[in-house]
């Protein structure tokens, strides 16, 4: 089948898509956007989190056909050219990135949180990121990064 959708503001068409393919597979293997990660492919780890019409979803749980005509924003679409989004910047600065495989999903999820909640409490951060597994950091630096990004966003 053919799937046409908008990703990071650009219209993309994928041809010969097998009906069983996920949005994640189409992004990674068909439109050249492997930033969203394939850590569990069953919605448990959050590494493939993307915005679908403005709502964060696990791209692995969305069938390719479901995105027809819709708008997707991935981790690759957060920075403004070389200028990182404040969440991305804070993740690098605070040491929230180690192997980095969970990072794209966490960055999108944290981006959504501070869009919705101006200065989230630690409990709110933990709740918002509870669906994103990280095996390297023990999450302390991730909390630091989200706090910093939220503070910077609030100050700007």
């Amino acid at each position: 089948m053919r799937v046409t959708f908008t990703v990071n503001g650009r219209r993309e068409t994928a041809d010969d898509v097998w009906e069983g393919e996920s949005l994640l597979y189409v992004l990674r293997e068909r439109v050249g956007l492997p930033g969203s990660k394939n850590a569990c492919e069953q919605g448990e780890c959050g590494s493939c989190t993307v915005y679908l019409d403005g709502t964060p979803v696990c791209a692995c749980l969305v069938a390719a056909g479901q995105v027809e005509g819709r708008e997707v924003r991935t981790v690759e679409g957060l920075a403004d050219g070389d200028r990182l989004d404040p969440v991305q910047e804070a993740f690098v600065e605070c040491g929230a990135v180690q192997c980095g495989f969970c990072t794209p999903g966490l960055v999108v999820q944290a981006h959504d949180l501070i869009e919705r909640v101006a200065e989230p409490s630690d409990a709110e951060i933990r709740e918002a990121l509870a669906g994103n597994l990280c095996r390297c950091t023990g999450y302390e630096k991730i909390l630091d990064a989200v706090r910093l990004a939220a503070a910077r966003k609030a100050a700007s």
Binding site: R28, E29, G32, L33, P34, G35, S36, K37, N38, T74, V75, E76, L78, A79, L84, Q88, E89, F91, V92, E93, G95, V97, G100, F101, T103, P104, V107
Partner: peptide, 21 residues
């Protein structure tokens, strides 16, 4: 100092072994 690979990783541009094509 910042990680050399940190910026690539937060942008989704760091090439993992599963990203090769």
């Amino acid at each position: 100092p910042l990680r050399p690979d940190g910026t690539l990783k937060v942008k989704g541009e760091f090439a993992y072994s599963s990203d090769l094509w």
